[in-house]
C-alpha cells in the first residue's frame, strides 16, 4: 500500500487543501476497496469512502503522528462501514450490481479466464458478505492489506486474542460457505482420496 509522507500530513494539518487532495488521490483505492469489501455495493462504497475522507479531514488535528496515517484512515473507514451495517441490518449484497461491475472486458486477450476470475471474485464477495461485520473487517485487513494481528487489533479496537479467534471463525465460516455452494468440490476431493478398490 502507498505510504503517505509525514510532511504531506503536516501540511494538511496546517490547512493546506492541496496537500489533503494529494492524500485523497493516493489513498482513494485502498479506502474504496475496504468500503466495497465491507458493503458489497459500489454506490454505498463510494459514499462511505467520501464520508471517510471527510471525517479524516475534520479530525486531522486528532491524528497521532506516531501511527501510520494509512492505518488511521483505514480504521476510520472500517468503523464507519461497521456502523452503517449495524444501522441498516439489511441484506448485504446487490449481486446484479456486483456482476455488472465485475463484468469482464470482452476485448481482453483471454475473455474466458477473465470471466472465470470475475465469477470467482463475485463468489468471494458473497462469502465475505456471509460473515459478521467485525469478522469480515478482520479478514479484509489480513488479506487485502496484509496487516499483522497487532495492527488489526489497533485498527478495530479489539484485543489480539479476539483478532485471532475472529480470524479463525471467519476462515472456518468461509470454507463452509464455499463447500455449501460448491458441493462438487467436496465429492471430487473425496473421490480423489478414496481407495481405488472401493
Amino acid at each position: 500500500m502507498i505510504a503517505i509522507a509525514p510532511e504531506l500530513v503536516r501540511q494538511a494539518q496546517k490547512g493546506d487543501e492541496n496537500a489533503y487532495t494529494q492524500i485523497v488521490e493516493s489513498l482513494q483505492s485502498p479506502v474504496f476497496n475496504l468500503c466495497f469489501r465491507m458493503l458489497s455495493n459500489s454506490k454505498e462504497a463510494e459514499d462511505a469512502a467520501q464520508e471517510t475522507f471527510w471525517r479524516a479531514y475534520k479530525g486531522l488535528n486528532r491524528y497521532d503522528s506516531s501511527r501510520s496515517f494509512e492505518t488511521w484512515i483505514l480504521a476510520i473507514a472500517a468503523h464507519h462501514c461497521i456502523d452503517l451495517q449495524r444501522r441498516r441490518k439489511l441484506p448485504l449484497i446487490d449481486i446484479d450490481t456486483f456482476m455488472e461491475e465485475t463484468e469482464p472486458d470482452r476485448n481482453t486477450p483471454n475473455p474466458e479466464s477473465a470471466l472465470l476470475e470475475s465469477e470467482s471474485q463475485s463468489q468471494l464477495q458473497l462469502m465475505l458478505s456471509s460473515l459478521p461485520d467485525l469478522d469480515r473487517a478482520t479478514l479484509i485487513f489480513r488479506y487485502w492489506y496484509e496487516y499483522s494481528e497487532e495492527e488489526i487489533s489497533q485498527s478495530l479496537d479489539i484485543s489480539v486474542s479476539a483478532v485471532k479467534s475472529r480470524l479463525h471463525r471467519a476462515r472456518r465460516k468461509m470454507a463452509n460457505v464455499y463447500l455449501a455452494n460448491n458441493p462438487g468440490d467436496q465429492k471430487a476431493e473425496r473421490m480423489r482420496n478414496e481407495s481405488p478398490v472401493l
Binding site: S29, N33, Q121, L124, Y143, R171, D185, E189
Partner: peptide, 18 residues
C-alpha cells in the same frame, strides 16, 4: 479443501477501484 480454495481466492483478489 474448502479453505484452500477460499485462501487462494483471497490471495488472488485485487483492489476494487472507484
Amino acid at each position: 479443501t474448502g479453505w484452500v480454495k477460499v485462501e487462494s481466492a483471497l490471495q488472488s483478489a485485487k483492489y476494487v477501484t472507484p
